[in-house]
Amino acid sequence: MRQRVVQDLLIACIDGLKGFEEAIRTIFPNAEVQTCVVLQIRNSLKYVASKDQKVFMADLKPVYQAMNKDQAEANLLELEEKWGKKYPVVIDSWRSNRDKLTTYFRYPDAIRKMIYTTNTIEGYHRQIRKVTKNKGAFTSDMSLLKLICLATERIARKWTMPLHGWAVSASQLKIIFGERMSTDL
């Protein structure tokens, strides 16, 4: 990213890939790092019996949709009281990852909605996979790269709409990050 003219990274939302946070902090030591809450939820549901998933999700929602970190912690305690004995692995996962999962509580709602999930990136990857999976073998790395570039151009045409509420979010980011937030939009 640094080689592609990214001067600073304010906030990064990442998946649970080991070493990813450390790699980001090596290049951008002041970056805030948030682990994707949606991926944490999906991983949690793998360990919850299907008959319990609906009720468990209703009880989990107040944890990640809380107004602040303290409320989220209180809601996690309630979740643990109800489900801790039955699903200790899930509760332990939320507890051990809570610092990485609660970065977004430092920000106003408009910014939270942009940084708590990697769904946008996952959508892009899904569209790239759709283009490449039916091709079988590629004659060279360059042919694969060309296909990905063409697919990216096609995908990018849909990216003409600004993010919902971007003007408000940008001004809030400018207040929070000061000179680190570029106003050259």
Results as ranks from 00 to 15, higher is better:
M1S: 12
R2V: 10
Q7M: 06
Q7H: 14
L10R: 08
L10S: 10
C13P: 03
I14L: 15
K18A: 14
A23E: 09
I24K: 01
R25H: 15
R25Y: 05
N30G: 12
N30I: 01
A31M: 04
V33D: 03
Q34I: 04
Q34S: 02
T35L: 15
T35A: 05
C36Q: 03
Q40R: 12
Q40M: 13
Q40P: 01
R42E: 08
L45E: 08
Y47I: 08
A49E: 00
Q53Y: 09
V55C: 07
V55Q: 15
F56A: 04
M57K: 13
L60G: 03
K61G: 01
Y64E: 01
Q65T: 13
A66Q: 09
A66V: 05
K69G: 00
D70Y: 01
N75L: 09
E78G: 02
L79G: 06
L79C: 04
G84K: 07
G84S: 08
K85L: 04
Y87W: 05
Y87T: 07
I91P: 05
D92E: 13
W94V: 06
S96H: 12
N97E: 13
N97R: 07
D99I: 00
K100Y: 09
K100W: 07
T102P: 03
T103F: 09
P108M: 01
A110W: 00
I111P: 02
R112L: 10
K113R: 14
T118V: 05
N119K: 05
I121V: 14
I121F: 14
I121K: 00
E122I: 04
H125F: 10
Q127M: 08
I128M: 15
K133S: 11
G136M: 04
A137G: 01
A137W: 08
A137F: 10
F138T: 04
S140Y: 11
D141K: 13
M142I: 13
M142H: 10
S143D: 11
S143W: 00
L150S: 13
E153A: 12
R154A: 15
A156T: 00
M161N: 14
M161S: 13
L163A: 14
H164T: 11
W166R: 08
W166Q: 03
A167N: 09
V168Y: 15
Q172P: 05
Q172K: 14
L173N: 02
F177W: 10
F177V: 07
E179A: 11
R180T: 13
S182G: 12
D184I: 14
